[in-house]
Amino acid sequence: MEWLIALAIGVMTACGVFLTLRPHTFSVVLGLTLLAYAVNVFLFAMGRLTIGQPVVIDATATGYADPLPQALVLTAIVIAFGMTAFLIVLALKARSELGNDHVDGLHISNKKNGARR
């Protein structure tokens, strides 16, 4: 099972990195969102994988998962949303100000004739 999770984290990271390096704002936002998933799962996995033992104190429980990574990841998920929202609005602002959605504020088509920066 651990192999599966490690693989999933790796694939999400790889796709996230690839998208982050793309030249258009929307792809970058998607890429960072994927990276955020990967990072959250990675952090969560630092508490090791536990099945069927939620951290709710109960006299009959035989053991508990690690609550600390869970608490960290919970806020990380919310913050990641805040970041995604900020980025996408930044992208919209850039489009409104610069007239295109290239990450560097220029379009491939108008690169030749002196792009607006």
Partner: peptide, 14 residues
């Protein structure tokens, strides 16, 4: 680069 990063993260996680 993406494959390298993904592979490295996988190995690290494992």
């Amino acid at each position: 680069i993406a494959l390298l990063a993904g592979g490295a993260v996988s190995v690290l996680a494992m």
